[in-house]
Design a protein around this nucleic acid. Structure first.
Length: 421
RNA sequence: GUGGGCGUAGCUCAGUUGGUUAGAGCGCCUGGUUGUGGUCCAGGAGGUCGGGGGUUCGAAUCCCCUCGUUCACCCCA
């Protein structure tokens, strides 16, 4: 094959039409639902000071090995990084602007992680998400989870499992971490070599191991839920009660830890059971009550989630739902008089809000009709010498069996609008 | 970062133990229908077989290197 000179960088890809239209429809749907719930859109920079993301935790892979970072041309140069996620950016913005809480924002956009690509994992990937800052009311947790849950349902997805856990807070986490570390250290010899390394960095994440040899040790490990303080336990119970009230099913997942260090109390993940790939988490989130303060802002609790657009679409493919939207072109103008008459007809239709397209290059009627057919437009408007003389067009039904008829040019837009309604 | 699979036409893939001008289906273009698509028929365009080196009289086919891609681990959306 003649190799093109340039290709999209590893882990990135071009999203071409019509697939791009499907993604936009997904984002539009999310935007609408978030706005209905009182969230406003935040548009933050695609890169930030590296320090913003370091607060995600020095023991996380996202910070230690997956950051796209670079220096700018300043003097001294600033160390910047492409955002690997958006929660930290939102918290940075909160600390910077001090909006009145509760502050509810939604977002969408690309994020970047330097990883080996595989099914459902890209170096540039897209997420939609929400964050609620300034309240630790468990009702806010329920609202957030419900918004995510109903969003998947609105796309037509049925095979989504909500996994729920509480990771405790700074008053109860240390005792648990100590118990977990002791237990895992005592059994370190039975753990996989990789998990022994992970144990040194962050014992919590050993619970995430998918290796078979770790399963036995992990299944007998102490659980966070047994170490929760009364207050944290009550918070968690209230979240669960709210989900029950809304009829949202969930699965308690006491070993769900999530990859970022900032999570406290409520954590959750949405898994797409229809995905056969290793990456079946289509969304995740939780509380991060200390993050704004870490970034230099006032002590501010927060709850939010991010949903992976790429993976959601893979899940939709697997379930055969949320298919590509049909073309906006309703009339394909076939002009065999040279093409200049199509200019006016297309303009008239478009100005009337009716999608119209045409072909170029003065091709034969047969060729133009083929293009009209492929365009997906329900109608073809044919212009020949005869129509021009009479100030008419021939409107042909490409999808049904009503044939074709002559329409006065002046009546075309109105006539088509009536047929489409 | 680690391991496995795969790189032949725009796409999906065949290419027998290495043997003349490298094939199919789909898609695309033209014609059959000098004003009519979707079905059908005929013809056509399109490939330095990912790249480099080696073995050989001869390599898409065998060997080495390299790049890309894909799946998995790690981790995450």
């Amino acid at each position: 094959m003649a190799e093109p000179t340039f290709k999209a960088p590893k882990g990135t890809r071009d999203i071409l039409p019509p697939e791009s239209g499907r993604r936009r429809a997904l984002i539009d749907a999310f935007a609408q639902q978030a706005e209905l719930a009182g969230f406003g859109e935040i548009m933050s920079p695609i890169f930030e000071d590296l320090g913003v993301f370091k607060r995600l935790g020095e023991s996380t892979d996202v910070v230690t090995k997956e950051m796209f970072d670079f220096f700018d041309k300043g003097d001294p140069p600033q160390h910047l990084a492409l955002r690997p996620e958006l929660t930290a950016s939102v918290c940075r913005a909160f600390a910077e602007h001090r909006p009145t809480p509760p502050w509810k924002v939604w977002y969408e956009g690309p994020q970047f992680r330097y990883e080996q690509p595989q099914a459902g994992r890209y170096r540039q990937f897209a997420q939609v998400g929400i964050e609620t800052l300034g309240t630790d009311d468990p009702q806010a947790d329920v609202d957030a989870i419900a918004l995510g849950w109903h969003f998947y349902a609105s796309l037509g997805l049925r095979e989504i499992t909500l996994l729920l856990n509480s990771l405790g807070d700074p008053t109860c986490r240390p005792a648990y971490m100590e118990a977990l570390r002791t237990y895992l250290s005592d059994n370190a010899a039975s753990l996989s070599p990789q998990s022994q390394v992970t144990l040194e960095r962050n014992p919590l994440r050993v619970l995430d191991s998918k290796r078979a040899e770790d399963a036995a040790i992990i299944s007998a490990a102490p659980l966070m839920v047994d170490f929760l303080t009364d207050e944290t336990r009550e918070h968690f119970e209230t979240v669960r009660a709210g989900l029950d009230q809304l009829g949202i099913p969930y699965e308690l997942s006491p070993r769900l830890v999530r990859g970022l260090d900032y999570y406290t109390r409520t954590t959750f993940e949405f898994a797409a059971d229809a995905l056969a790939t290793a990456q079946n988490a289509v969304g995740g989130g939780g509380r991060y009550d200390g993050l704004v303060e870490d970034l230099g802002g006032p002590a501010t609790p927060g709850i939010g989630f991010a949903l992976g657009v790429d993976r959601i679409l893979l899940a939709c493919d697997a379930e055969g739902v949320f298919t590509t939207p049909e073309s906006a072109v309703k009339v394909f103008v076939v002009d065999v008089t040279g093409g200049s008459h199509a200019l006016g007809v297309c303009t008239t239709l478009r100005n009337a809000g009716i999608g119209a397209d045409r072909s170029y290059g003065g091709r034969s009627m047969k060729a133009q009709m083929k293009v009209a057919d492929r365009s997906g437009a329900p109608f073809a408007a044919i212009i020949g010498e005869d129509e021009v003389v009479n100030g008419e067009v021939t409107l042909r039904d490409l999808r049904g069996d009503t044939g074709q008829q002559r329409i006065a040019l002046a009546d075309l837009a109105e006539h088509v609008a009536r047929l489409l309604s």
